[in-house]
Design a protein around this nucleic acid. Sequence first.
DNA 1: GATAACACTGGTATCGATAACAGTTGAGGG
DNA 2: CCCTCAACTGTTATCGATACCAGTGTTATC
Lengths: 344, 344
Amino acid sequence: MTNIQDVAKAAGVSTASVTRYLAGQTIRRADAVKQAIDELGYRPSHVARSLKTGRHDSIGVIVPDISNPFFAALVKGVEREMRPHGMQVILGNSDEDAGREEALVRELSQRTDGIIMAPLTENDEIPLALMKTGIALVFVDRDISSGPDVDRVLVDNASGVRQAVDHLVGLGHTRIAAISGPLDSTPGRMRHEALLSSFEHHGIAADDSLLRIGDFREASGRAAIQEIWAAPQRPTAVFVANNLMTTGALTALMEMGVRVPSDLSVVGFDDLPLAALLDPPLTVIARPDVDQGAAAARLLVERLGEPGQPSPAPHPTQSLVLPVELVVRGSTIAAPALPEGSPA
Amino acid sequence: MTNIQDVAKAAGVSTASVTRYLAGQTIRRADAVKQAIDELGYRPSHVARSLKTGRHDSIGVIVPDISNPFFAALVKGVEREMRPHGMQVILGNSDEDAGREEALVRELSQRTDGIIMAPLTENDEIPLALMKTGIALVFVDRDISSGPDVDRVLVDNASGVRQAVDHLVGLGHTRIAAISGPLDSTPGRMRHEALLSSFEHHGIAADDSLLRIGDFREASGRAAIQEIWAAPQRPTAVFVANNLMTTGALTALMEMGVRVPSDLSVVGFDDLPLAALLDPPLTVIARPDVDQGAAAARLLVERLGEPGQPSPAPHPTQSLVLPVELVVRGSTIAAPALPEGSPA
DNA sequence: GATAACACTGGTATCGATAACAGTTGAGGG
DNA sequence: CCCTCAACTGTTATCGATACCAGTGTTATC
């Protein structure tokens, strides 16, 4: 590859002048430099520049599962927001693996100016190490329990769950099953806690045979619903704490011949791209996904400033909580009349 | 940040010895170096290392749309294959934008040792420039028409389309509509050409009012099916050339009150994560997605070798074509009896 | 004509690591 | 005791760009 020295020589100037030309400053022999660059096909080495300046003009996004439509949409939001600021967006997919997440954080923290990430668990120590390196950090969708103040963008998980339970109770359901997410992840914990407190608020006794903890992946949704359906007393409705587990649960229900909603009402957290086309159309708690990514990107830009500009003064961290919304479709209907002999 | 000099000083050795320790060679004062590294929290600068060695120990993947489940799965395959080789996978999402694709190529070609990409169009000039820089390149799912030999992994588009048309004709359909993809993209062109040649093979006249070219995105599937349904003579079946356009078409059909499959049989290219749960379950041409990514990764590894090892000798480029398979579900049924007066 | 201000210029140290090279040490053999 | 060899060591140039510093020329002002 040709380097800045080749260009300088070809144009008959010093490397400093080429640098100045590259930075948009006016130099006497601009034409000659431009010509030399074109003829040699010169591209400045990003690596060398980063080494000298310490800047990268790019940010990283680390998500647990890029094939989850929610995270894919989130990434889109980040990119859309970043593009006009002239920053590259680099993606990392941890595949729900702590080791891989750590490797990505190490890698991207050296190649980017800031990182937007959804940490795997609330005990995740990795981001703490990140903060010490001075890189800008924004948490999105997930949080960690300990550690320093960090910008974050969450959604109102508690409100969503409350809306869902209110909706089911309003339809007469009292035996409500739930497939929750990992309790050491922010959305898993918040949704589960909100569920229990909603149950309590409505005077519904929590029945352990109807409560399952999954791992937010499809297979665990399948397994959980099978266990729940084998419970001594079956539920009339089920709440599933995320999109992939909902997919798994629906698949298993179809295979088991359980009809939704006549045998079982289903409400899921997270909208699905095809939720309206399912049989029946799925009732869900929808939340902003693209917007959540965009919001995180905005927080990061506020901290980093534009490429080429001096960084803005540090300011206090911000926490955003975006609203969610219950979308009632066809998968939830009134509870069947109580069988004889049941408690009132 | 602490650098290698700090470590060397703290351990009472030269920087060269620290480098050697880092590279796994045996040095006399290994304990002291290890201790210094731990105490100072030293992490070697990836940027500086890359500048000196020219290696990055990471690869890039550039896709047109990460929120397309097919590409998300493909990325997963790449990562799964790369992980045991100790290479980082960095993602870029061009969002179907040529300018953004170019920026990503420039960016990632300077940060990675090789790139797996699905070029936007077959006329894409960008990868050609890439080849000149000497970086390893693998095309996946899409190809470019001109230019040097490149490793590539495609699927058997023609066979898939043929299977779909054979299936529809076997069910008695003769008025078959199609929503094709962009003709300047490899899958768009190959599927469209295979469609026309299958029509010809079965003696079906191509009716322009039933053939639409979309852009592989959901909105264009919606628009196309609306136009098709407004044709003077409606079709009894439709073939849709990819997953997102199929989603769009199904949504529009539902909104228009067209019943699938009784009013219209539907077969789509690409399986959907929820295809089996749709109403009706969707007949599709399924293809390996994760495997396609994994195959591309394998080709790249063959060219790059393991990190820390010398690169293997150059070898001729390879082209893989993976098989596809028609999955018959519920969205295709026998054509209705011909209305009176129709040509036989 | 001297002086100041301005707009540029090139030389060079530097970012943080690696690798080539030229020592230095200690063990073992004669 | 000297020599050879193996195993390790430090010094230094280098990757490709940037930024500081100290000029150099031109123009404007008195």
